[in-house]
Design a protein around this nucleic acid. Structure first.
Lengths: 232, 232
DNA sequence: GCTAACGCTTGACAATTATCAAGCGACAGT
DNA sequence: ACTGTCGCTTGATAATTGTCAAGCGTTAGC
C-alpha cells in the first residue's frame, strides 16, 4: 500500500484518533488489493474474517433470497463496510461486489478486536461508527416503509442535487438498474417513475438529469432530515 | 427502583461486565418511572437526553411522514432502545410509545458517555450492542425488500412458533393492527394474508393461531437465519 | 465490420397492495 | 341497558408495483 493510501485510511473517523504506531500495528497481516469491476468480494453467510475498507472505486452491498436480489447500500471511498459482522463474529448478512475497478484494504478481524481491548479511544470511535451505520439503515427503512417509489426517487434526486451543488444539474453516480434496486423497485418502474416526475420539471438524458425547479420537486418529495440527511 | 429491577438491568449484556460501583454511578441522576399504556415517551426529532431501558411492559418504536405512520420495532423487557441517537448526540429517528403499562429506566446520556471514557470494557460492550442492533435492522430491511407481505407473515409466524415452543400453537403477543404495521402492510391486507395462509394449515381465532403443519408453512416461507434468526 | 450481450425504455398485462365503505362483536363509559 | 369507540374482517375498487415481451442504442468481443 502506498503511503498516500495509508494516510487516506488513517483519516477515517474510526482511525483518526489512533497513534501512528497503533495504526501500523492494526495493519499487520492486512491485505491491500486491487480488484477489477464486478468481482464478488464477500458472500452472505460467510464468516467475517476481515474488515474491508474501500480505498478507491466502489462496492455494492446486496442480498439474495430465493430468486430475488436487492441492493442494500453502496460503499464509496473512503469508508469501511460490514463492520458489524466481525464484531459479532457472525456470518455476513450481505454480499459485496465491486462496482468499478477498486482498491480494497482488508484488516484481520482479530486486529480490530485486539485494538479495542488495547485502546479505549478506538472502542469509542467504533461505537460512534456503528451508531452512524445503525441510523443510516433506520433511515433507509423509514424511506422504504413510509414512501412510494416515486417519492423515494424524488428525494434521492434532491439529495444528489444537494451533494453535487450542481444547481439543478445532476449526474447519476450509478447505473439506473442499480439505482432501481437501491430504491426498492424494478428497472421498469424506475423508468416510469422518471416519467412521472417530468411534470415536476425533471428531464432525463442517460445519466444526466435536469431539475428545472427544485422547489417544485420538493413539494412532491417532502424531504425531512430524519430520513434524508445522510449525516446526523 | 427496587433492587430486583436494578439487578434485572444489571444483567443486560451491556452492563453485565461492570462493577457494582460503576453501575451505581452510571445510574446517578436516572429516573425509574411507571407509565400507563399508550403514552408517548419520545417524539422523533427531539434531542436524545436519556438512554431508555424497558424494565417491564413494552414499547413501540414508530415513525411518521406526511400522514403515514409505520412501526419500526418493538422493545420488550429487559432491553434498551434508541441507543444510537444519544451516541451521535443527534435527534431521535423514531418516536416511542408504551404498548402496555410499563416501567422505564432513563439514564442520562452524559453518564453513558462518561462510562465509555472511564471503562474500556463498557465501550466494548456498547460496540457489541450496537452491532447487534445494526444487524437486526439490516435483517428487517432484507425482509421488506425481498419478500411479499404473505411471506413476511409466514416467517413471522414460524419465528413465533420457535420462540413459544408451542408445537403449532401460537399466541400473537401484539394486536393485529400493530403487527400489520410492523410487517409493512395495512390491517386489511394482514387479514387477507392470514386467509391466504389457510391452505397451508394456518387457522386464526383472535390472537390464537394454529399451525397444523409447520413443515408445510416452511415450504412457503422459506426461512433463512440470515433474515429470520433474531440472534447472530 | 459483425454479432451478441446488455442497459434502458415502452407497452400490455398480472399480481400485489392500498383505500373506501360497511358490518360485526367486544368493550368502556354514561 | 344504551351508546360510542375500536379492532377486526370482508367486499368493491383503485393505485401501485411487478412480470413478460419487444425494440432500440451502445458496447465488447470475435
Amino acid at each position: 500500500m502506498r503511503p498516500e493510501n495509508r494516510n487516506q485510511v488513517k483519516e477515517l473517523s474510526l482511525f483518526r484518533g489512533m497513534t501512528d504506531g497503533a495504526f501500523d500495528q492494526l495493519l499487520t497481516g492486512s491485505f491491500f488489493q486491487r480488484f477489477p469491476a464486478h468481482v464478488v468480494l464477500i458472500r452472505e453467510g460467510d464468516p467475517a474474517d476481515f474488515l474491508h475498507v474501500v480505498v478507491d472505486g466502489g462496492v455494492e452491498l446486496f442480498s439474495n433470497w430465493r430468486d430475488h436480489e436487492s441492493t442494500i447500500s453502496i460503499a464509496r471511498p473512503v469508508s469501511t463496510f460490514i463492520l458489524a459482522a466481525l464484531i459479532r463474529d457472525a456470518p455476513y448478512l450481505m454480499s459485496a461486489r465491486t462496482l468499478d475497478a477498486s482498491s480494497i484494504l482488508m484488516i484481520p478481524s482479530e486486529n480490530i478486536r485486539a485494538a479495542m481491548v488495547d485502546d479505549g479511544a478506538f472502542s469509542i470511535a467504533m461505537v460512534g461508527e456503528l451508531a452512524a451505520c445503525f441510523r443510516q439503515v433506520v433511515k433507509a427503512q423509514k424511506n422504504l416503509k413510509l414512501r412510494s417509489g416515486v417519492e423515494r426517487l424524488a428525494n434521492y434526486l434532491l439529495r444528489l442535487d444537494a451533494e453535487q451543488q450542481g444547481a439543478g444539474h445532476v449526474v447519476l453516480p450509478i447505473e439506473k438498474k442499480l439505482l432501481a434496486s437501491l430504491l426498492g423497485m424494478t428497472p421498469e418502474n424506475l423508468s416510469r417513475a422518471f416519467a412521472t416526475l417530468k411534470p415536476y420539471g425533471v428531464t432525463v438524458a442517460n445519466a444526466e438529469i435536469e431539475i428545472a425547479n427544485p422547489g417544485d420537486l420538493k413539494t412532491l418529495a417532502k424531504p425531512t432530515p430524519l430520513i434524508d440527511d445522510p449525516d446526523s
